[in-house]
Design a protein around this nucleic acid. Structure first.
Ligand SMILES: [Mn+2]
Ligand SMILES: [Mn+2]
Ligand SMILES: [Zn+2]
Ligand SMILES: [Zn+2]
Lengths: 143, 143
DNA sequence: TCTCGTTTCTGGAATAATTCTAAACTATTG
DNA sequence: CAATAGTTTAGAATTATTCCAGAAACGAGA
């Protein structure tokens, strides 16, 4: 079992994690990776992560937050989720799953893929292939 | 049968359509409604509609395009679909359905609700209720 | 461990979509 | 035809994100 399922890894594996992703383990990427990958899976916006880094005493520019988030996404260790116009969420859970979007709080919650049965997908138009199927269940407080 | 299924209506029904939605039939709303509701269902961005209006010789400000699109949405005769960060699509099809999102062209295509079986939705967290379930199938040209 | 070419980081300017504002207009109603 | 409330608009403002170009950090070799 060489397979390490991202969030079960103790701490300090971040550097290896970054290298495996083909990214130099710089001071800022290490700090961000620790915040993101140690512990539970998370859904963050760039601003969220920026604030969190500051709070943790890590000095990183917002531009670097965006750069890192996109690099992590391109490297396949995060993914981008779009639920609201004008704001991007980045998800540390890269496995197959779906989301509850809490409209009140603007937060995302994972829905394990087994819990939703997306079947009988119409064939993708010819010459095209399906990149991903996103299911977003929008919930909010009862009336 | 008082029910008129939006796009089977001849033309000139727009005024009635707007009134039913509780919106004054102003010159610009009538023009936009004609572009939007006469003919097939459509998915447009604010800029799309603005360009189309100009092309049709209708002078409407971009602010009014946004206002109208939101008013139509609030009135329930359109709905907003979010598939890409930073751009909103407005859909004239308010019925239950899902979408193919063509990443290459940035266009949306309806998927009739019957074609996708979203079952066994996990219960919405207590005190919350499901507003909508969006399924987005992202497709793009084969590698 | 020093060196140097390459990558990364950064503050601030630039962009793009959308929203806001306040003044000018227009639909509606009596 | 008013009078009034609703609507439109140009342009400024806002928000999220990206771009830029110089400074700093990384790491493969010597
Ligand atoms: Mn992006
Ligand atoms: Mn909106
Ligand atoms: Zn998730
Ligand atoms: Zn649609």
């Amino acid at each position: 079992m060489t397979e390490n399922t991202s969030h079960t890894r103790p701490y300090s594996g971040v550097i290896a994690h970054l290298k495996q992703a083909g990214l130099r383990p710089t001071r800022q990427r290490i700090a961000l990776a620790k915040l993101l990958f140690e512990g539970e899976n998370r859904h963050v916006t760039a601003e969220d992560l920026h604030a969190e880094a500051r709070a943790a005493g890590v000095s990183v520019s917002l531009a670097t937050i965006y750069n890192s988030l996109h690099q992590f996404t391109d490297a396949g260790i995060m993914r981008e989720v779009v639920v609201e116009a004008g704001r991007s969420y980045f998800d540390t859970n890269t496995g197959d799953h779906h989301h509850f979007f809490h409209e009140d709080t603007g937060s995302l919650e994972d829905i394990p893929t087994e819990l939703i049965n997306v079947s009988a997908l119409p064939a993708a138009p010819q010459g095209k292939s399906v990149q991903r199927v996103d299911v977003i269940v929008r919930v909010s407080a009862d009336d």
